[in-house]
């Protein structure tokens, strides 16, 4: 569903993404794992055209993102790392707005709102929302268009435990519907629990991509997956310095 071929992105002289190639299959949950600034976000953004690659290309659903941005984006829903909505719009208005951009009817949007159990908050202004509520709205917005691909950038970074739990439920629910999901995180546990496969970013490079089980097997049984992750990070950061 998503394929990156030799994706490279430079910001000025800084190499943010360095020759990254990977593939995410239909129905798969793929996690980008890596420390902050390792290139996860930049890679994700290039999938929805927010970042223009310096070289290499990305195919979404077989469509080249750079050549047919609008067509490629039609099958992707992306949740930015820190989603923000205009403070003086209501939840319902925001949902209506994004529905209209995707050609979705208002009744479908109403339905989505109900499903997300927003009942009491639908007519409230975002300015009065808690962080958790904003996240719920964000998830409602990206699940609304029923795109085959979901992209979530650090979705749990600023959430309380309850929010994290809700997110987990959301992912599993979407997986059941057969969606392809790509999310990034720096929490090992999250990747371990949710993902089918993991790609590990260190200093702009995708240093490993394996199934969670495969990774675990690769290393000796006495090592936890955490040790493995740190091993990658140390090895590759050491190489760079």
């Amino acid at each position: 569903m998503i394929a990156a071929r030799h994706l490279t992105k430079k910001f000025g002289t800084i190499l943010a993404v360095d020759d990254v190639s990977f593939e995410v299959k239909r129905g798969e949950i793929f996690a980008f794992l890596g420390p902050n600034g390792s290139g996860k976000t930049t890679t994700m953004k290039s999938i929805v055209g927010l970042v223009k690659p310096t070289s290499g290309k990305i195919l979404v659903h077989g469509i080249d993102v750079q050549m047919h941005e609008k067509g490629a984006k039609a099958s992707v829903s992306y949740l930015p790392q820190r989603v923000v909505f205009p403070e003086n719009l209501t939840a319902r208005e925001i949902l209506y707005f994004y529905a209209s951009l995707r050609g979705i009817s208002r009744s479908d949007a109403d339905e989505a709102l109900e499903k997300a159990r927003f009942n009491g908050f639908s007519e409230k202004y975002i300015g009065e929302f808690s962080g958790g509520m904003v996240q719920r709205l964000g998830l409602a917005v990206i699940s609304l268009p029923d795109t085959p691909i979901l992209l979530l950038d650090e979705p749990t970074a600023s959430l309380d435990p309850q929010g994290v739990k809700r997110f987990r439920e959301f992912v599993l629910e979407q997986k059941e519907q057969g969606k392809t999901i790509l999310f990034s995180t720096h929490l090992l546990a999250e990747a371990e629990q949710l993902a089918d496969r993991v790609g590990i970013f260190v200093s702009g490079k995708l240093v490993a991509q394996e199934s969670v089980d495969g990774l675990r097997e690769k290393f000796l049984k006495n090592k936890t997956i955490e040790d493995m992750y740190l091993h990658y990070v140390e090895t590759f950061e050491g190489q760079h310095q």
């Binding site: 929805v48 067509g71 992306y78 930015p80 923000v84 909505f85 951009l101 995707r102 917005v141 992209l151």
Partner: peptide, 15 residues
């Protein structure tokens, strides 16, 4: 305006 808002908007299938 807010980056988060713009990112969400520009990731929609719009030019």
């Amino acid at each position: 305006g807010d980056k988060g808002s713009a990112e969400l908007l520009f990731s929609q299938p719009v030019l």
